[in-house]
Design a protein around this nucleic acid. Structure first.
Lengths: 157, 157
DNA sequence: GAAGGGATACTCGGATACGCTATGTCCGAGTCGGACAGG
DNA sequence: CCTGTCCGACTCGGACATAGCGTATCCGAGTATCCCTTC
């Protein structure tokens, strides 16, 4: 099981955009140089955040990306679902009723599969933790990052 | 993000093997027919459970697979890690120190990345839930399944 | 000085290419249990 | 009746093929800003 790099990229970009709120918008060229990432692909991933309403994008000269809401109102859950899609990692394909073992289980299969329910419980715990943390929390967690970001951004063309 | 089908297959096989404990071992041919799954590939996945010490496999005629321990001592976490590997879904690649934005952050980068820490917290909650549930719990959760399994297994050649 | 036109710097969306991993199949080797033949 | 041999069923491990997705790049179209020209 693997979570795409877009999640890490998106979270770092959101935090950085939070620190640079008064410099917004920030162009994709600067963001890519900032993290040493492939510019075109990073753009594609940030577009997913824009579609999800987490970022706003401004076209034209001096355009770029910015946070669409204050960082206190963007949770990690928002970013993860925007990047990875809304589907659960575990998907029940109902193999219990596919073969010879499932015959004659009529009423039993009206109830949801116990295994799917168990996996779902675990994923809900995961989502709950993600929804409990915001971009603002991440910003607050590394105070030196804010200073470093403003310092380095001033030198970036 | 996607969890392989092997997880669902493995969990269902473990539960079924728990119900059929006194018929053990069960051959891969019967298990595949039981769930309507591709026999060769299912075998490959169950071998991963065997390597992890969750199942035992007996070669030769009347051989097959069986649970290696009582179902109370097999957690969902055991099965998931055996199937998906021990790596975390989220992997921090330290992009924070890769580009122009990371310059001059010397001491700051001695501390672990706050974003990675946040994701790790969420994954720990997930793993905790998985480790809290056992195959025996799943067996108990669908009492009719036990009866159906024994009934259908008697008719299976 | 104001209006118009063009250059520039961006984003957006789609098309395409590539590699890795999940999925699926196949084969040779080893092992166990039972059948069968010979003493 | 006992023992040795053979055969079939089964697992193990590795090799190989395929498909889908994550990653990455490129291009045409649209748009906002700035500058330059023209009146």
């Amino acid at each position: 099981m693997h979570m795409g790099e877009g999640v890490e990229w998106g979270l770092h970009c959101c935090v950085t955009l939070g620190w640079l709120a008064d410099e917004a918008p920030v162009s994709i060229r600067k963001l890519a140089a900032w993290f040493g990432l492939p510019q075109e692909y990073l753009k594609k991933r940030l577009q997913a955040l824009t579609r999800a309403g987490i970022l706003t994008s401004a076209p034209g000269a001096r355009g770029g990306f910015a946070l669409a809401r204050p960082p206190e109102r963007i949770t990690l859950m928002d970013v993860v679902t925007a990047m990875e899609g809304p589907l659960d990692p575990f998907r029940c394909t109902e193999i219990r009723q596919r073969g010879a073992g499932g015959e004659g289980g009529g009423e039993e299969f009206a109830h949801p599969c116990g295994i799917a329910a168990a996996m779902r419980r675990a994923e809900l715990a995961w989502r709950r933790e993600l929804a409990a943390q915001t971009i603002a929390d991440l910003m607050a967690a590394s105070p030196q990052g804010a200073a470093r970001t403003r310092r380095n951004y001033a030198r970036l063309r």
